[in-house]
Design a protein around this nucleic acid. Structure first.
Lengths: 186, 186
DNA sequence: GTCTATATTAAGATAGAC
DNA sequence: GTCTATCTTAATATAGAC
């Protein structure tokens, strides 16, 4: 039987926003109930393991979003630089142009469920591979491609922290705008 | 009258470690009491405003540490590249070679006291200025110097997130090792 | 200044009606 | 499936002895 009042996708979206903005410990069941429009008892029906269970389920959700919106566009078709630009648009959406924190960073502090941390850790590795692959396709050798992939992730994560903390989105926007060149240029 | 059982510096150190590792919401008064060796009631004597008050007081503590260990060495005397290397040693200490999260990142999620966030935000700006100054002193023009300073902070913060999340300190160590060149080279 | 003991409030979790 | 009501546990905070 399908869930009625609130569908799974909407619930997942609301829960993810709370966890990424407030962290695991900072998000209460009351917060989740208010945001989703369900009572706490109903949340226990959907997630018998309570908050931990709910948070754990964000892993597959985020991984799926990344695969669909970032990894797939990077695989083609189209010119590598164009594909990266497509990914950058999705990236800006996911991070609210630099205003929203990284979900993995937010949940990697002690308290979050370890299963989630490892799921997201794997997503990071897949992201690195995805970047390295398109850099190689652009004609860079394997070593350089891996280095550029690491640099790309450092630019994204570093600029994200600084943008959020200083309240100035420019660092993030500049950093992601430079990604096509970083990942393709000789 | 001075505090007897536990001196201010030791208490500050323990509290800072808890807040940076677990975040504001993830750190309870019981955690603080256990770590410091004081009972909760004694913590209220020292910080009448409770946990929020305690956390707020980490701001000046961190700012002072940064001034003493990072900004001062950067000012001289000595060759710019040598001064940066001195700072890098302190940086590695402060961040546990990439294992410890950034205190500002950890506390900028919702829940931490806003006074702390703004105090640490100012520390960031001072850090940027400090980097830009030594880059100019190394012969870079003002625009380039500012850009390198921003890049240096992005490298530090980005590599820190990735090192912590992947459990591999190499990214952080490589990033800070590259700082002397980044901030001085034409 | 620090303690033990206790009050107060909020969080996590369950029972049972509809 | 979702609700209201309630239970249990843990957190914040205070009172008063030493």
């Amino acid at each position: 039987m399908a869930h009625s009042r609130v569908n799974d996708a909407a619930l997942a979206e609301k829960a993810l926003e709370l966890f990424r903005q407030q962290g695991y410990e900072g998000t209460s069941l009351n917060d989740l109930a208010t945001a989703t429009g369900l009572e706490k008892a109903s949340l226990y029906y959907r997630f018998p393991g309570g908050k931990k269970d709910n948070c754990r389920c964000r892993g597959p959700h985020v991984v799926h979003w990344f695969e669909e919106n970032m990894f797939e566009p990077l695989k083609g078709p189209g010119l590598p630089a164009d594909r990266i630009r497509t990914m950058v648009r999705k990236l800006r959406l996911f991070y609210g142009d630099g205003a929203k924190p990284c979900i993995l960073d937010a949940l990697s502090l002690r308290g979050g469920p370890p299963e989630l941390a490892s799921a997201l850790g794997n997503a990071y590795k897949a992201w690195l591979d995805s970047f390295a692959a398109i850099a190689r396709e652009s004609g860079l050798n394997a070593r350089t491609a891996e280095d550029r992939a690491r640099q790309a992730l450092i630019q994204i994560e570093g600029s994200l922290v600084l943008s959020r903390v200083t309240g100035n989105r420019k660092m993030f926007l500049d950093a992601v705008a430079a990604l096509p060149k970083l990942l393709t240029q000789q």
